[in-house]
Design a binder for these strands. Structure first.
Lengths: 419, 419
DNA sequence: AGCAGTTAGTTTGTACCTCGCACAAACTTA
DNA sequence: TAAGTTTGTGCGAGGTACAAACTAACTGCT
């Protein structure tokens, strides 16, 4: 599957090959900013400003970035000609007098992004427009213990089905996967619940079949980017996404960049220790955060406390039952919130990001759960004067946030160059 | 106190005033890289490469950074003329044939950096050469509960004494301080053991008196920069510094940059929780890492176990007594190492930096303590294939590492622009 | 000794980017 | 209708990195 008509400008490094050439034999630890890279960087930042702030005029963008208006014109003009951006009609502005500003926004028909969400047993592929719209969703299932070839065939088939509905070449393909991912090498290291994926060099495989830039990252990082793009993290420079469910995970947005850690292994929070010599964890260690703040703990406690249908209890149900007056539910919910809070406290003491977006089970508990957790965090953290800690939930269907995030991963990896 | 003869080129933003002008009314979250900033950025990176790798020829630097040789010439030539760098004699190289390379290195007589280490009751000021040499150390004491004016007078006096021995204007002044620091605003928030410092806007005060760029940061961050500059972190792009003693603290070097967190509050690791509902901490919470891995814990346990002179026990002494065959010392040392390891494990699970430099009490235990801790970390961390975790100690007199780090803070804040 | 080959560093010209200035377009206010 | 304001656009200036071509200095072979 090949596409034509690449845009006349570059959004950054468009293919891994280009990247290798650009980096050359640069084995050192210094990278200078080259003249040509500068253009790509600034183009990327202007686009990001448009993501973050919505439609803006050239003059607004110039003010926002502290640069000359002419600079913005020079950057956006080719993008308008290339139909990536659209110049809207002059809108009635709030300022008096003067030529009315013409807002710039993303062309809904601009090149889209391929996105894949890979969870044990299921593949979800789609196209994501720069406006965040999700199109051409195709799903497939695979045998987690089956044959690699069969999985690759299923993967290729759904992705082809989704991508073929694009009119112009997508900018790239982003894959969000459960499990342990090496995002540098582009391989899946291990997925406990889907051994067929173990060691799969998925990026190389997809790159070869689709001739597009491909990025893979783990699920929480996709949620983070989804938050940043169209969720509560929009426009923020520092925040963390935290996922709770059967397992716990997290990802960080630091100083305007997605944090990966070496080989993309940052954010494996589930196995940070909050209880030395505590309960045994799946990983073989004791007292991991996952042993006190994930669903298995919640359900075990529900059994112990004699709650109704304890094996299927969720945060959402606890909130509902609390509202209906169940003291037992309220008590368990509070303990759950407190246990979740400990992990956030440790993050806060370490990175001091001040802003946390919750996903997964606790997100089902909505604002009430978030507020409960926030209160525990406030109590447990060492306060600094004037410091406010924000805890929000992203309740949008998880699949959508992760898919948007997977798409955003491609984009951000090509916009935010490592400089 | 004023200096003359500024260099003809700029190493970045030389004064806060310039910075404000440069940022303009940029209240947004986007910053484009301007053409002129590009030069400053690359100049800074070349200098950093020289720090990291020691004397290098232009050609080597070009290869290291993946840029053209002519670019390096253009960058270093003004610095040589300005006597910041010196071009060494052609040295016999290992390659056969060709014109011999001429190494570039820092002029020991180049402008130096002012550095201050502020601990409860004591002030230490000095000059630090770009070669790392520490000169003109002057010390003073102050009453931690005394008068603010008296403190400022003492501070100004020692710093003036140190700076007056410089022949050219220092690049700036770096302050490393105990306690909670707001490095954005340049103020000391609180120092538990020195109330006189509470709320002191030290950066503004020093900037006014010395007309130089001034940077303040907390003690562990200075240690980090000291490590990065002349310690085990030299040339590394990702590592953490961890300080243990009466209190615990840390700082991170991430992707080639010092991590600060909002208002410089990142790295307050002592109060991350490793034992839910554990022992009561000074901060009023329970189960902080500080309650199980700092000196007070160690000494309390030494008392409990009946070790000799338990109130003055240190890691160094435990190592010595272990070597001499004391089983009790060996057992306590191992438990101490394990407790320290938990904090490092949590860092590793969160940020995945893979490299840790220890300071303070555990550093006194030398390689033996480091190896013990490393073994515990290896056992407690979720291993990824091929992942190696390095734990080292920086045993150099703490004052020196912190002072060098304080100096480095100024330099790095002026070299590594936020771009 | 002399020449080819190799590497270091410089000179020169080119391409690219941002900025400041001047100006037209479009709108408001008096 | 005139003055004032804001947006957006040419155009030249200044600064930066790069490529090509050159000189300088050294090695190894004949």
């Amino acid at each position: 599957m090949k596409f034509e008509s690449q845009p006349s400008y570059s959004l950054g490094q468009r293919t891994p090959a280009t990247r290798e050439v650009a980096a050359g034999e640069n084995s050192g630890n210094v990278t200078l900013v080259s003249q040509s890279a500068l253009g790509a960087i600034n183009r990327g930042r202007v686009l990001q400003a448009l993501y973050d702030n919505g439609p803006k005029s050239r003059a607004d963008l110039a003010r926002l970035a502290g640069v000359n208006r002419t600079t913005i014109t020079g950057i956006v003009q080719p993008m308008i000609e290339d139909q990536l951006l659209i110049e809207g009609d002059a809108s009635p502005s709030d300022v008096k007098g003067g030529k009315p500003a013409r807002p710039l926004y993303f062309n809904p028909d601009a090149p889209m992004l391929g996105a894949v969400l890979l969870l044990p047993g299921t593949i979800q592929s789609c196209l994501v427009a720069l406006t965040g719209e999700i199109k051409a969703v195709t799903k497939a299932e695979f045998d987690p213990h089956g044959d690699t070839e069969a999985f690759i065939a299923a993967m290729t088939k759904t992705l082809t089905a989704a991508l073929s509905q694009a009119q112009r070449a997508p900018f790239g393909i982003g894959v969000a996967s459960a499990g342990m991912i090496d995002s540098d090498k582009g391989t899946i290291l291990t997925v406990n619940l889907a051994p067929v994926l173990t060691g799969l060099p998925l990026v190389a495989i997809l790159q070869e079949r689709f001739s597009l830039p491909v990025v893979i990252d783990h699920h929480p990082r996709a949620l983070l980017v989804g938050d940043r793009w169209f969720g509560p993290g929009r426009g923020q420079q520092n925040f963390a996404a935290v996922y709770t469910g059967e397992v716990l995970g997290g990802a960080f947005f630091i100083d305007g960049k997605v944090y990966r850690g070496l080989a993309g292994s940052g954010g494996e929070l589930g196995h940070s220790v909050v209880q030395i010599d505590g309960a045994l964890c799946n990983c073989g260690k004791h007292g991991c955060w996952e042993t006190v703040a994930a669903l298995p703990w919640l359900r075990k406690e529900a059994v112990r406390m004699g709650l109704p249908h304890p094996r299927s209890v969720t945060c959402a149900r606890l909130v509902k039952e609390t509202d209906e007056g169940s003291n037992a539910a309220e008590e368990l919910l509070d303990r759950y919130a407190r246990n979740v809070a400990f992990g956030i406290v440790n993050l806060q003491q370490t990175l001091s990001l001040n802003s946390y977006v919750l996903h997964g089970d606790v997100a089902g508990g909505g604002m009430k759960a978030a507020e409960l957790i926030r209160r525990h965090v406030e109590q447990l953290v060492v306060k600094r004067p004037g410091q406010e800690i924000s805890i929000t939930v992203n309740g949008i269907g998880e699949g959508h946030t992760a898919l948007r995030g997977a798409a955003g991963l491609v984009l951000s990896s090509h916009l935010k160059l490592v400089i």
